[in-house]
Design a protein around this nucleic acid. Structure first.
Lengths: 338, 338
DNA sequence: ACTATCGTTGCATTCGAATGCAAGATGTTT
DNA sequence: AAACATCTTGCATTCGAATGCAACGATAGT
């Protein structure tokens, strides 16, 4: 009577083995493709397993195989509106490849050390990181042999596998187009100074403007939020007579648009051109229809995932940078001649 | 010379033990708070551990303690603009409590069985699910003893721990306000028919309208996207003379606004009132300033997490529903007298 | 009928950390 | 100095699945 009841967990391979009258190894083999099990035995085992609701314990598997089947995804700031799309695609693609996502988000970039601590403890097979890593942190990935791909970040100090969207190419089109259609006086709404991405975008735009022989544009900075763009635009427009504002991301561009057209009654693009960067969904909404450069998120996430798995298979594969150009989305907030 | 080199993983407790000249158990105790270790020994162990970059292997810990420290978060559709905020808060709160997030997203709700399969294999301590579960699936959580909290979903068949935002309360305010200010002819843009949340919201609004003795409002449905709201509004406004449109979520409401004011040149709220539900960030943007009901995401996620941990501590804790009312966000897209 | 061969199966060990128990070390009490 | 309490420490086992090796049975070949 006091036969061992079905454990809450759904049972172990031993429970299945006992029920099917075989050894634990047989059960294990039965769930590993390519192992040698007689059809009749397999059938008995499968049946017993189903009766118990048995699922192999991935934790135990990880311990012995040294493959956890988990990939860490580290994203600095999920509220950023651009990242949810990235995250959705990454998880989708990872699960298609049979990997699970261990998600970490950062409140402050300084949390990263705590996050990495968890990453090491959980023996993830690899990590996709959209946050800045110090060279010491990069080295830790190296020494531990954990595959790593940076997303829209790079390191000047050490070469790392990374995918990014190049600001310059799309930006050049935008800036040149605006200049060709008569814009002379530019301003830039950048990201925080310590943001790699933001800084690269600022630099890209500024270089292009200088190259055209125009005055160095004033720069205001924000935290990539709508409010920040709105306020930065107010400050800039109060101090300068501007033809165009270049924002480091779409959401700030939308805030700037609202400041300009709703508060200051400027016509867009008649009085002022505004352009963004990212290509998030709201930029396409009819009340905005922002002229922007869309990051090819689909291709970028696909590239990140495939680079990651290459490096999980072969940990000694060297660094590689993959750069994608953004696609110009014309919109109606900037007059681009041609 | 052929001393065993530092393994790529950062070493095991045995490596640390050998280096510090103690037993593996001492190392283990050293990393468990409250265990008995002499200060001098602890110091030696800590030093050895640091030299090796040792971190306890969470996989091995999980196996023996039967606690993985991981919580599954299952979300149907991350692109939904409302979920990123929820997800960000959940991960934040979970990591504050020392848990890791295993993230699963669903392309189709039918993927859920595959996802649950992974959930069982990975021995998560609990799960927060924002997707519909069949009663068989609910039972599986029960029998396996995995803590479960549903987020904005409930089950009619079996009672489960859940947190939700009640549509009715906020909706009542909105509908009553619109009626008081003269709206007589309503329409509803609902979610897909198989969406629990969407359906509840449709029903809430319709009941309130009937209660006021007004005609049963026509219903059009969309998939919660901007485009869907835009198109539904076009269809509704082509067929009916309307005073107000009630959308099941903000993003569809914004699409409807653009259809009405940009294409049909209707004044909002003069000719047409539009209200949404959720309180997402874009609803506050100045070009929209949507009148809506905000879900108290902060309190809801806090409640979900605390219910979950209660149930992880005590698996036999019974079901409990926690219902939050939304906060009315006045905005300027509906005339609400009073 | 005897042996060679192949396919199945089980035994025993492994992964890395946690922990009950007992032995050892240290300190206290009388 | 003896007896005892307390704190440290190590030994051995455990968690659940994977896998090398050996043993087994069945079939085929001669």
């Amino acid at each position: 009577m006091r036969e061992r009841e079905i454990p809450r967990t759904g049972g172990t391979s031993y429970d299945v083995a006992r029920r099917a009258g075989v050894s634990q190894s047989a059960v294990s083999r039965c769930f590993r493709p390519g192992a040698s099990v007689a059809p009749a035995t397999r059938a008995r085992i499968i049946e017993a397993a189903n009766e118990l609701g048995y699922r192999p314990n991935a934790i135990a598997q990880s311990l012995i195989t040294r493959r956890s089947g988990m990939v860490a995804v580290i994203i600095s700031n999920l509220t950023n509106l651009y990242y949810p799309e990235v995250l959705a695609q990454l998880t989708q693609r990872l699960s298609e490849r049979g990997a699970r996502v261990l998600l970490f988000t950062l409140q402050a970039e300084s949390d990263i050390d705590n996050v990495l601590d968890q990453v090491w403890r959980y023996q993830v097979d690899g990590a996709i990181v959209a946050a800045r890593l110090s060279s010491a942190q990069l080295r830790a990935f190296e020494t531990r042999g954990t595959a790593l791909v940076l997303y829209n970040r790079e390191s000047d100090e050490a070469p790392v596998a990374s995918v990014s969207c190049e600001f310059a190419a799309g930006e050049t089109l935008l800036v040149d187009g605006m200049i060709a259609s008569g814009c002379r006086s530019f301003a830039i709404i950048g990201g925080p100074e310590d943001s790699t991405v933001g800084e690269a975008r600022v630099k890209g735009a500024r270089d292009r403007i200088s190259l055209a022989g125009l005055a160095v544009p004033p720069i205001d900075r924000g935290d990539f939020s709508y409010e920040a763009g709105y306020e930065a635009a107010h400050r800039l427009l109060a101090q300068h007579k501007l033809d165009a504002i270049i924002a480091a991301n779409d959401v700030m561009a939308l805030g700037a648009m609202d400041a300009a057209r709703l508060d200051l009654k400027l016509a867009i693009p008649g009085d002022l051109s505004i352009v963004g960067f990212d290509g998030v969904a709201p930029a396409k909404w009819r009340s905005y229809n922002l002229t922007t450069v869309r990051q090819p998120v689909g291709r970028m996430t696909a590239a990140a995932i495939s680079m990651l798995f290459e490096r999980i298979e072969n940990p000694d594969l060297g660094p590689e940078r993959r750069l994608f150009s953004g696609d110009l989305i014309p919109g109606s907030t900037a007059s681009l001649s041609r």
